[in-house]
Structure formats: structure tokens, C-alpha cells
Design a protein around this nucleic acid. Sequence first.
DNA 1: TTTACAGTTGAACAGTTGATGAAGTGTAGC
DNA 2: GCTACACTTCATCAACTGTTCAACTGTAAA
Lengths: 124, 124
Amino acid sequence: MQRKKTETAEHAHPRPVRLPSVNEAALDRAARLFKAIGDVPRLRLLAMLAHGEACVSELAAAGEEQLSTVSQRLRVLRAEDIVVRRRDGKHINYSLTDQHVVDLIFNALAHASEMPAGKSTGRT
Amino acid sequence: MQRKKTETAEHAHPRPVRLPSVNEAALDRAARLFKAIGDVPRLRLLAMLAHGEACVSELAAAGEEQLSTVSQRLRVLRAEDIVVRRRDGKHINYSLTDQHVVDLIFNALAHASEMPAGKSTGRT
DNA sequence: TTTACAGTTGAACAGTTGATGAAGTGTAGC
DNA sequence: GCTACACTTCATCAACTGTTCAACTGTAAA
């Protein structure tokens, strides 16, 4: 019987099919990481934390946000092991987990400063 | 008079408020970039394209996805200038816009391979 | 021109996400 | 113990996202 594959690509190709050689687990981890930092409010939090650890109140005050809002954002970042927390009396201080995340962010921010917003502009 | 600000953080802090010194436009661009690549299917596409340019059919066949699905994913990546396209007869070949994106991705994938999935597992 | 191929776009739908106020947890001081 | 403070978690809800099929555009060959 002939199965109707609706639209599922299945035909002659100009080049042989090249299956991804990347580790699926790494791909998943990387995508999760990118997704977590792919949000302006969260990325801003990280940019703040890049200057040193800070407690939730500080971060909330600096961004004029509600505590619960900031707390939720930090939760997302913590779930991906991007930040860690440490209790200090009544306060809970957050900081970036490791240098590689710091590097990644600054690297991207640096490149982002170079390239104009996104559309048009053409190039050089 | 005491103003009721519901929950909006406003109290004594252990440290002075440190406002973000980062460029908002760069932050926005970086967040958009991360968001676009923060998705396994899209990141997989990029991983494939890192090996060289490919047309939509190839990418679709390699991932056993529908043409329209892949096309939509590429659209998102193209909207963020992560990939570019070039027509070649009936085919449209996509490739990564520049080396810096390639670096970013491989860098992240390399680090992702090092760190264990995310939660638990303990450590080494 | 007609047909087939390669890809894009639009609309609809399901699933996910993020912000918020209220309620809960944990710590410090009285 | 009780109260205040510093957060966290829960539940809700609106807004957004990703996938899909159908329809459409553009190219090539007959």
C-alpha cells in the first residue's frame, strides 16, 4: 500500500542528506540555556549579577520590579544552573554559577553591540 | 503618610542599588538572538548548517520534518539574521550568516557537553 | 502555456510562558 | 511565643509560540 506522506520531504536532493552529528543531550542542554537567557528581563538580571552577587531585594529595587516577579525569573535561571543562591541571614544572595556563562553573555552582548538591531541596514 | 506599595521592593538594602550599565539595545539584540537559538529544532538546524549550506528539502529530509515546518523555523532564524538564503535554481540554500554565530553555537554546545544535564546527578 | 517542483505564507489550534497577588516558608529579633 | 522581614511558591490568566494543512509564489522544463 502506498502511504500518503502528505508533505513529508521525500525526493531527489542536490546533496546527500547530512544527519546532524551533534550530541542530542548537548543540543538539548544548549537550547535550554539559550532559552533561559533569551529574555530581556532575565538577561538584565544576569548582566547585573555579572557585577557581583546580589540579593532579590536589590535586584527588584534596581529594576523597579516586584519581588515575586524577580524571584520567578531567578527560579528559571536557577533551574538551568545559570545562577546559584546562598543564604546570608535574612537575605538570599544570587550569583552566576560559573565564568563560562559570564563569558557567553558578555561575548553575545559585545557582538550584539556591533550589529545593528536586526533588519535592513544592509552591510558595510 | 505611609504609602502602601503592595510589594514593590522599597526598603533598606545590604548593598547600594546597582543599576545595569549595559546597553539596552545590545541587551535586546542578545536576548532575541538567544531566544531564536533557544529551541532544539532550530538549534539542530543551525548545527546542520554549521557543516555547510543546505536547501530546505535537505534539511527537512535529514530531520524527517515537513517542508513548511522547516521553512517556518528558518524564517525565525532569518528574522534574527542568524541565517541567510540564496536561490539556486529551484532550490533555496540556507547558510549561517557569519562566523560569530557559528562560534557561539559550538562554544555553547561544547560547554553543554561538559556539564551534566542540569538537575541532580550530583557531580563527578 | 501547462505541469511539476521547491519553498513560502496564512490561519487555526494546542501548548507554553511570564507576570501577578495571595498565601506560605524560613530567619531574626523582641 | 509573636511579629516583622525576605523571600518562595501557588494559581490564575493573558500573551506568545510552534506545528500543521491549505493556499499561494516563483522557477524550470516540456
